[in-house]
Design a protein around this nucleic acid. Structure first.
Lengths: 209, 209
DNA sequence: GTTTGATTCATACGTACGTTTCATTCAAAC
DNA sequence: GTTTGAATGAAACGTACGTATGAATCAAAC
């Protein structure tokens, strides 16, 4: 299908640059330059810049989704009614765990996910498929069982909150080395902080009208 | 200084387009077209696209910061030790409240703030000044008094969480009319949901190592 | 009525972009 | 050794961008 892998090197370079500068802030020329490939290679292997971004997004989002799905499966195999804390851990945990790409790749992955979620480019709406939607719906149902008093709309709001907190934390962790701040330990600790923060938030009693 | 206001019309148009398509996704030509102004007007009134964005950011962020500052002042005037819930309300509330621009302007304002916070463009680092940093530091100190057991780093993480939840909620509220979902009531209710969510999250006991 | 200074206008400049084209390379199949 | 088809390479295409220029406009000051 490919050589020792021009294609993969383009994917790697694109992942890094898209994460750092966004979709519109990254040129095909910069990608191929970093990948050591020819400009036309993007067209040849992916068709267009947008399809390259979709391929990058797929490669990044899929393993995280698989981890979320596996976590929920394990949880439900142990007990039909997991606690809120367990659900938060299974859902948010994978966003903090190391991805196959390695150590620094982890932060970059999360940063890229934020880019995907928040990029105002119109193309961004089609970067992710319906796969992660189905995982989210499953978690939604599980949370609904654990929080029977919560209105569906408020529950949906809170699930968005989980995404927001994890994503934005990873974002700032990556893009701002923090001016005179706590970068070293924070990277390790933020996963725990997030679980604490989000478990308490999800467990809050329903908002009274 | 100006006509009935080419300058203001450019600011309005830029605010809307930057919010919808991001900094890089918005061209000076699109701005001046929407504003009914000439292409060169941006250069004349603001100097450059980047300086225009800075002016837009200033105009949007300043009143929200003022509201946050005023809320904290009022709170501290009433009691030296406000509750966590009061602080959350005073800090997060203004992000949901209507801005002078009017009804739909509110969502757009919040969306723009997200753009400012999350835009990967290098220019974005200089769009906001040190003013809002000082407000955040004051809230940080107030929260620290209300949550004496919390390590400073974890507190800082949680404050980022407030920004994340409010910002991302407004983001999705504006950019996705939600496929078959709860847009109508959600706009009204999300402020309350956010306060509930964030107050519980901020009040969580410290994370055990 | 003329001058003045601020604003608007049409237009051009130089650059960078995404994409396309077509020739070239190169390892494997025959 | 030749053929073949995938892969790479160098270069150009047309378009859009941010910015700059200098003439035209126009209300107010004199």
């Amino acid at each position: 299908m490919a050589s020792p892998d021009t294609r993969t090197q383009i994917l790697d370079a694109a992942e890094r640059l898209f994460a750092e500068h966004g979709y519109r802030g990254t040129s095909v020329r910069a990608i191929t330059r970093l990948a050591g490939a020819n400009l036309a290679a993007v067209g040849y292997h992916f068709g267009s810049k947008a399809e390259l971004m979709a391929a990058v997004a797929r490669r990044v989002v899929e393993p995280m989704n698989a981890a979320q799905r596996a976590g929920l499966d394990e949880l439900l195999a142990r007990t039909p009614d997991p606690t809120v804390g367990d659900l938060v851990e299974a859902f948010a945990g994978p966003m903090f765990d190391r991805m196959p790409a390695g150590d620094e790749g982890s932060a970059r992955t999360s940063r890229l996910i934020v880019t995907i979620l928040s990029d105002p480019a119109e193309e961004a709406r089609n970067w992710t498929g319906p796969a992660e939607d189905s995982v989210r719906e499953r978690y939604l149902a599980a949370f609904a069982r654990a929080l029977p008093d919560l209105a569906p709309q408020e529950l949906r709001f809170r699930m968005r909150g989980i995404l927001a907190v994890t994503a934005v934390d990873r974002l700032e962790a990556h893009q701002q080395p923090s001016p005179g701040c706590e970068s070293p330990a924070a990277g390790e600790a933020s996963r725990g902080w997030a679980i604490t923060f989000l478990t308490a938030a999800m467990s809050a009693p329903p908002t009274r009208i």
